[in-house]
Design a protein around this nucleic acid. Sequence first.
DNA 1: TGCGATTATATCGCGCACGATTAAATCGTT
DNA 2: AACGATTTAATCGTGCGCGATATAATCGCA
Lengths: 149, 149
Amino acid sequence: MSAKTNKTSGEPVEALRLDRQLCFALYGAANRVTRLYRPMLDALGLTYPQYLAMLVLWEASPRTVGALGEALDLESSTLTPLLKRLETQGLVARTRDPEDERRVVVTLTEAGAALRDKAKAVPEQLFCKLNLQLDELGDLRERLKALAV
Amino acid sequence: MSAKTNKTSGEPVEALRLDRQLCFALYGAANRVTRLYRPMLDALGLTYPQYLAMLVLWEASPRTVGALGEALDLESSTLTPLLKRLETQGLVARTRDPEDERRVVVTLTEAGAALRDKAKAVPEQLFCKLNLQLDELGDLRERLKALAV
DNA sequence: TGCGATTATATCGCGCACGATTAAATCGTT
DNA sequence: AACGATTTAATCGTGCGCGATATAATCGCA
């Protein structure tokens, strides 16, 4: 038995150990990285998911809510309030597509487009906070992109 | 320029591309894995963070709120309401430590301890849903544990 | 031309996750 | 003993993330 007493178990259930769980490593890493971003994103007035949405829009604007949801793998129930907050901040505009009134088109405002310059430094700043080589980062990124697709 | 028109940018800012961001790969993978767990955890009546808390308690109960927070890397502002919900479900008991009334001791109830048996199958069930070799999983887990510590 | 089915977004309720703050118990130093 | 500093949880407000549901526009087909 382990050094620490375990008052709940008779025999250990190996597979249930927290330190063997990929899910916990993933959960913890995601939380830690969000916390690392926070001070940098505070300076931009963005939350972490808002920053991700802006990344998508900086690549191509306008986009429909649906297209954003596909890119970010998020539901409209998550995106709609988030986009309304970006709209309130004056970073995006939300308008119905006249071609199909079901669609809502999200467009960067000038302020939203301009924020891109301030955000340019973020990726490198963050990279410095990770204890990681550049090639390790690329490898890890690709593995994660392939995970649970 | 890329095949799709990009009305926002003059020259591309390579580092800002979503598909180059480790943060997004991590964020997406964490969300996807949570969604994979959901049906299995629904059967146990647990959310994903509740499942993680139970994993910690199945390893050793009782534990203080602080010790749980350290193990899970979560603040009391997250844990306290979560533990109250587990208490409401009858899975844990929360009592003040008589030795030091500041501490709250979280103890598995019989039902909480018993749930462990039902949870035993979860890790393997989840593993089957990931497109992953066992050694890849271990490697990925260790890399994530080292990330942003 | 209708009218049921589908599609696109929005709304609602719940449970995190965290920073800021509060409250209470304990500790340390005099 | 006293009292300021520290430690431990709890509380509060904001913003996700999602399932279930609602609403409205469009489509398809008789």
